[in-house]
Design a protein around this nucleic acid. Structure first.
Length: 275
DNA sequence: ATGGCCAATTTTATTGGA
């Protein structure tokens, strides 16, 4: 299964790029963030024509997340589903191909100490609470723009960014708390070096200088992460005319391989007659 | 090479992003 995530920074502005990217990579699942529009603004006819189902949680003007998939998403949930709806479309989840997939757009936080900063830290706690209602023994992936770089390798200038909302110790702690539930950074299972980023500021020649951060992540529970076979960042998608400021992140999983320690009958193909 | 912000609405300024 190919599972990807991409903050498109407006699906209307990125429509042609999105469609070309889907044609080229054909992921089984693509999580989108910052579609910046309501469900009616989404180019559903075009993505449907490419064979994709859509689970959209839109919002006029801001935020907005979606899951595109080649098989029909089941049990779609918009938001945290815990009665704390705040009018911000930042989380959508669904069962796709036996995996619970979430597309998350963590608040930016604007500036340390601001109301938005408090909202960001609180949102990460709500995400942890949402996870607490599930089990890390299940195949689950939270994909998206976390607006937090996990560690020093993920930031070009860590000392400079430490005071910013994207790499502040408190934000990193918030992300760690989410991961401590039982999520692994799939990209880091396949790449250990620094300098590999997923976001570059539009300003100050950040991209040509590779002055970026890795804030777009695919986090997976152990049963899923252990089946990952590859991960990459499509840096080329940041180039050219009218790019998003984020690059897509691609991961791949071999779901056919039996899971060690799994006692679930009828799954994994261990009893299948086919060779 | 990849290039000195971008995209939305509240629209000819302002807001938020990251």
């Amino acid at each position: 299964m190919k599972l990807a995530t991409w903050n498109v920074n407006s699906v209307r502005a990125r429509k042609e790029r999105l469609l070309r990217w889907l044609e080229k990579h054909r992921p089984d699942v693509l999580c989108l963030q910052e579609i910046k529009g309501s469900e009616e603004d989404f180019p559903r006819a075009e993505t449907t024509a490419l064979g994709y189902y859509t689970a959209i949680f839109g919002q006029k003007g801001w935020n907005g997340v979606a899951i595109l998939s080649l098989t029909e998403p089941q049990a779609v949930e918009r938001g945290f589903g815990d009665g704390t709806d705040d009018g911000q479309a930042r989380l959508v989840s669904a069962d796709v191909g036996g995996v619970r997939v979430a597309s998350a757009y963590v608040p930016n936080g604007q500036s340390v100490g601001s109301d938005k900063w408090s909202f960001k830290l609180a949102w990460l706690k709500r995400l942890r609470a949402w996870l607490d209602r599930r089990s890390p023994a299940e195949p689950l992936a939270v994909c998206g723009d976390f607006n937090v770089a996990p560690d020093e390798r993920d930031v070009k200038h860590p000392a400079l960014w430490e005071r910013s909302v994207l790499f502040h110790p408190e934000a990193r702690q918030g992300l760690q708390h989410v991961m401590d539930w039982g999520l692994q950074d799939v990209f880091r299972r396949h790449h250990q070096e620094g300098g590999l980023y997923s976001w570059w500021d539009y300003r100050m020649l950040a991209f040509p200088k590779n002055d970026g951060l890795r804030i777009d992540l695919v986090l997976a529970t152990a049963p899923l992460a252990e089946r990952s076979t590859a991960a990459s960042i499509d840096r080329d998608e940041r180039k050219g005319v009218q790019p998003s400021d984020h690059a897509p992140v691609l991961t791949e999983f071999d779901l056919g391989r039996p899971l060690s320690g799994s006692g679930a009958p009828g799954t994994g193909g261990s009893h299948a007659a086919s060779t």
